[in-house]
Amino acid sequence: MGAILEARELVKSFGDVRAVKGVTFAIEEGEIFSLLGPNGAGKTTTISMLSGLIKPTSGDAVIAGYSISREPNAVKRAIGVVPQEIALYETLSARENLFFWGRMYGLGGALLKRRVAEVLDMIGLTERADHKVATYSGGMKRRVNIGVGLLHGPKIIYMDEPTVGIDPQSRRNILDAVKELNRQGMTVLYTTHYMEEAEELSHRVGIIDHGELIALGTQQELTRMVGEEQTLKLHLGEDENPTPLVEALSKLPTVTKATASAEPPIVTVILPEIKESLAQIIGTAHQLDVRIRSVDIEEPNLEAVFLHLTGRALRD
C-alpha cells in the first residue's frame, strides 16, 4: 500500500515563535500512526496544518493525492477530523448534529440520511439519537464527536488527543473504537501524550518535541534506540524531594541517565545492568535519607525512548 499522507518539511511560525520546525513523515494507507509528544510539543499545530485549519509557513503535505496548500477543499473532503474538545451543538440532538455536519461536508438528500443512520448505529446511539447532546454522558458525547468525523466516509481520520480529560471506561471505549475503525480499513492519525495509548494503538509512532520530529518508526524500532538498557523506577515516599537523589545517581558510573517527576515523586533511572547496580542505588538513597516505597523494573518502552532522546520524561 502507498502513502496516503506525506508531510514534507512542514514549518509553522507564530511571530518569532517556531511552533513546528520542518516536520516530515508519511502515513501508509490502513495504518494507525501516532504523533507522541508532551503538551506544547507541536502536535495540534501539525494536525491543524494537515487539516487545512492553518496555513503552513513553509513546506507542504499531500493527502490522498491533494496538496494542502493548493487544494485545501479536496483535502478537507478526504479527511475526517475529531478535535480534542467536544465540538458539537449541545442543545441539538445527536441526529441533528450529524445532519448539520453532514451538510457541511457537502452531503445531502438520501445519502445524508443513510450515512447518519449508519454512523448512529456505528457509535451505538440509535436509541438516543433524538435526545439533546447536553443530556449525554461524557463518553457518549465523545462517540458523537468521533461520528461526525466519519460521516462523509473519509480516507483518513485525524484524532487529536481524543482521550484527554475523560474517565477510564470512556477512554477504553475510544481506544477500542479506533482499533475497530482501523480493522475496517480506516487510516488513523492519532496524537497523544499518553505513551500507553501510542504503544497499544500504533503501527508506527512519530515522537515530537519542541516542534521537531525526533524519532519515527515502529515501537520495536524505537525501543532499539535505547539499546539493551533497562529502566528502573523508584517510587519515593510522598513527601520526599527527588532532586538530590537524581543528582547523586547521575554521578554513578553504572547509571546512563536519571530523571525525576515531582507528583508523585518518582525517580526514573536508565542503566545497562540493573542486577549489578541495584544495591548501590538503594544505598545511595539510604545515605541521602530518601525513603523508597517501591521499585519497578521496566522493559524498554516509548517513555524510555523519549527520556533517552530528550533527557526528560514525557509528562514533564
Partner: peptide, 13 residues
C-alpha cells in the same frame, strides 16, 4: 471558543 467554528473550518466550507 467551544471548538465548533474551528471544526467548521476543517470541513469543505
Amino acid at each position: 471558543e467551544s471548538g465548533t467554528l474551528p471544526r467548521l473550518l476543517t470541513t469543505p466550507t
